[in-house]
Every structure is written in structure tokens, then in C-alpha cells.
Write a protein that binds this DNA or RNA. Structure first.
Length: 114
DNA sequence: GGCGTGACTATGG
DNA sequence: ACCATAGCCACGC
């Protein structure tokens, strides 16, 4: 092992960049996908420091397990995360929760275990 | 090493 | 739907 911390961050970035347009996933799902099912909070931490605006990182497609936009405060403006989601056809109810979350949800494990 | 914090999650009232 | 609680664990002080 070279550097766990860095490896995890890179793995998270890869998964996030793999989320298809118009879909979204959760912190816990990403944590599982990288083999660390208990590190959902760390995934959130990584997203908060990923500089999505300047890093080609669709961090707006990552929400919590209920489809709630728990990270919307980190996008500069209050409605930026919702705006980005709706720009790709995802409806957000009251700047809070993704509508039809069950169908919008994309499981990275399905992509990995093809 | 202790302690508070957090873009978390599951469960229960 | 909302709030509280408990488990979780890296991170920074």
C-alpha cells in the first residue's frame, strides 16, 4: 500500500465521474463501492473539498441515502445544487429532496460488477 | 490519546 | 414528515 487516504479519494472521484447524466447516487453507496462501507461520512468530506466547480466533478449527483440534498450549502449559492440537477432532468422538491429517488438512484456496484 | 465535528445511515417514536 | 438516538469513523485540534 502506498497511501490509503489518497487512494480512497481517487477511487471516490472515479466513481463520481462515472455517475451517468440524469442519475444520482448516495454517499453510502459510493463507500460500499470502494470497499469501505463504513466511510460514508468520509465520502461527504471528500466531496466538500473536491472543488467540483473547477474539477469537472459532478458532486451534485451525490446525495444522502434518502435522496436529500444534504450538501447544497457547499455549491456557492443556495440553489446551485438544485439548479444543476434540474438542468439534467432531475426534479428537486422544495430545494430539498429528489423526486422519484428510487428510479433516479444509480448503484455504482452494478456498474463495477458487470 | 482524548474530544468535537460532520455533504452519513438505520431505526424508532 | 419531523425529531431523537445510536452506531459509525476519519480528521483536526
Amino acid at each position: 500500500m502506498i497511501n490509503d487516504k489518497e487512494a480512497i479519494r481517487q477511487a471516490v472521484y472515479e466513481i463520481v465521474r462515472t455517475i451517468p447524466f440524469g442519475r444520482a447516487t448516495s454517499y453510502g453507496a459510493i463507500a460500499k463501492a470502494i470497499g469501505h462501507p463504513n466511510l460514508s461520512r468520509l465520502v461527504g468530506k471528500i466531496m466538500s473539498t473536491c472543488e467540483s466547480a473547477t474539477n469537472n466533478m459532478p458532486a451534485h449527483r451525490v446525495v444522502n441515502s434518502q435522496g436529500i440534498l444534504s450538501g447544497r450549502e457547499a455549491f456557492g449559492s443556495d440553489q446551485e445544487m438544485q439548479r444543476l440537477l434540474e438542468a439534467e432532468g432531475i426534479t428537486v422538491v422544495n430545494n430539498h429532496r429528489i423526486q422519484s429517488w428510487k428510479t433516479v438512484f444509480w448503484n455504482p456496484l452494478e456498474e463495477i460488477n458487470l
